[in-house]
Computed example of a mutant assay.
Amino acid sequence: MPAATPEPESAESAGYQDVEDSAATGAGRAWWDANAGEYLDEHGAFLGPADFVWCPEGLREADAGLLGDVTGARVLEIGAGAAQCSRWLASRGVEVVATDVAEGMLHAGLGYDEAAGVRTPLVVADARELPFPDASFDVAFTAYGAIPFVPDADRVHREVARVLRPGGRWVFSVTHPIRWAFPDDPSERGLTAVRPYFDRRPYVEIGGSGRVLYAEYHRTLGDHVAELVGAGFVLDRLVEPEWPEGHDAVWGGWSPLRGALLPGTAIFVTHRRPG
């Protein structure tokens, strides 16, 4: 008889603190594996089984066109989660591969293939060590994946640059850095800055064993740009989606109340320097 799967460890403390990079390595994979079902139960209806949503503001690739014309392109998704974005592209005939470090997230989305009537190629992979040859993709993207959950996002950018062809496009969305100065609260409490914008300590949850269970990393706008330039990218656009009228969904700290006053998402549209 197989051994019973142990219950996930509960967090006993949470806050902004420095942790060793090695202690946080693997925390993202374990957290998303353990919480894949709960995450999709909460947000699956908003994201859809085969839709390309960039952010809690509801900006969709169908409207924004941030990837450009992908006709005939080979596209890579990083930190795909349940691969809804890749599935949307695949349903339109785009050659796309979806990757995520958490097998549980990819597996949780398999049922979406049946619902959408499309097969989405899925690969379990760390965004910092992509299992693809050099210059093998024309476009790469991630919608809130990978970058916030590793201490060394510069490695993600360098790996994406490696697998992109010269001139290839790299587009990613993250929590707008200014949000880190405010409580992650959708109410009026989330409108008062309580932390320095330049405090780069990650948000960390630690279990009773002392193990890091979850870690999310803050980078300023300048940090993101410096990492991109250092990896060989040119910044073409910085998109800050406005909260649309009539959108009343609340997602964690995102809400109509805060969205009317503060940007919640930053989307970097870049391309790899030729040569």
Rank of each mutant, 00 (worst) to 15 (best):
P244E: 13
V250K: 10
R169V: 08
D248P: 00
M1C: 13
F233C: 11
G208M: 04
D152L: 04
E216T: 12
L164D: 01
V97M: 03
G168H: 08
I206C: 02
L59I: 01
R87C: 00
G222L: 05
E245D: 12
R158K: 13
Q17P: 08
L235R: 05
S22R: 15
E12T: 15
L47D: 09
E205A: 04
Y217P: 06
E114S: 15
Y16W: 15
V94S: 00
V124F: 01
E240D: 04
R189M: 02
A116D: 08
G259K: 09
P244R: 11
W243R: 01
D18I: 12
V97D: 06
G26H: 10
G93L: 14
E7L: 08
F198I: 01
Y197H: 14
R60K: 13
P241M: 13
A135H: 14
G111K: 07
E95T: 14
W251K: 08
T220L: 11
R158V: 03
L66N: 01
T142I: 04
A102Q: 02
G253F: 15
A14E: 12
F198S: 12
F172P: 04
Y203Q: 09
T220K: 01
A36T: 06
A260R: 10
V174Y: 01
H157F: 02
H107Y: 02
E12P: 00
H271T: 12
F46V: 10
V234D: 11
H176A: 13
D248A: 15
S91I: 00
G28L: 03
L66E: 09
R165D: 07
T5C: 00
V212N: 06
M105W: 08
S10T: 13
F52G: 00
L40W: 06
R155M: 07
D185H: 14
H157Y: 11
V124R: 15
G44F: 05
F198A: 02
V97Q: 11
A249I: 11
R273G: 00
D63F: 14
A64K: 06
I206F: 05
P166S: 13
P49A: 06
R273P: 10
R169I: 02
W170Y: 15
A27P: 09
D199Y: 04
W88Q: 03
Y39T: 10
R258H: 08
E103Y: 05
D223S: 11
T99Y: 02
L122E: 01
E242F: 09
V194G: 06
P148V: 09
P2F: 10
